[in-house]
Amino acid sequence: MSNPTPLLSVRNLKTYFDLDEGQVKAVDGVSFDVQPGQVVGIVGESGCGKSVTIKSVLRIIQPPGRLVEGEILFNPDNGGGQGPIDLAKFDPNSKQMRAIRGKDIALIPQEPMAAFSPVHTIGNQIMEAILLHQPVTKKEARQITIERLREVGVPSPQDRIDAYSWELSGGLRQRAMIAMALACNPKLLIADEPTTAIDVTTQAQILNLLRNLQQQHNTAIIFITHDLGVIAQIADYVVVMYLGRVMETGPVDDIFHAPQHPYTRALLESIPTIQSAPREPLPTIAGSIPHPFNRPPGCPFFPRCPDFIPDTCNAQTPTLQPINQRQSASCFLYHDEAEEN
């Protein structure tokens, strides 16, 4: 497999929140790559830092949160031209950052109901995204908006463009959101649990839509979810996160069929299957997620880990190690130096 220049390369990203009660290391050294046209799924439990990761990439983290260190190398020209830009170096509200946000990297939010302003029409808000980044007139922007709405399957878009978000069904609302995200033909689409707030049938339609659009436009997607089923449907490559750290990365088939990290295994085991015996309790991961102020030392997963190695996992922090040609895991089971010690 050739290794082209990644579209996005996140290196050792750290985003902390300084609260009165103490510091929360929401994202603590996350690294992953997104290739052009690839769908990368970031999966993890609530509070594992997936949303903060992508908000950091977009540079829309609000105080008390701040990007502490790391690189966010973005390469919109695909290797040609000026080479990668480090988004982490920009001021979050600078012109350069705002020129990229919404144009080259667009967001599909979790709750389309709340992400649309209730007192502005959806057309107004989609046109705004176009007018911010493209040298077009209002009339042209309106035409583009109608086209985009048609593309995402909104019926009679010439009327719906003047609708308010609360006049649309949940599915249509999310379609309108996708139309807004696609308004400027972004290179990278970030979808933050886009199907959480809608029912399963609509969810499947939205996922199909995203898949089709991704193939037509060759847009790369970072897809965030806690739903492994959704990941299996849409992702090419998977990043498993736990407590602000990457536990395992790999192609979707390897992650599902040959999970390496104990956490990934535990996650997969807790999915109910059609073969499971009736009235049997579902397997769960022992213990619960530690409170963010009480992060365990060493590997964040060790208190719940079935493969806990005493004096190692609770003393040192493992780093992401390649296990085979495709997968990497952050676990002392695969740490050569750790075993040598």
């Binding site: 705002r98 020129a99 919404g102 144009k103 967001l107 992400a115 302003s117 911010l132």
Partner: peptide, 19 residues
Amino acid sequence: PYMEMARAKGMSEWRLVMK
């Protein structure tokens, strides 16, 4: 959340707060 969305669109802070 619409604030975050407007920021993600690349709007300047002042304009989005006013709008």
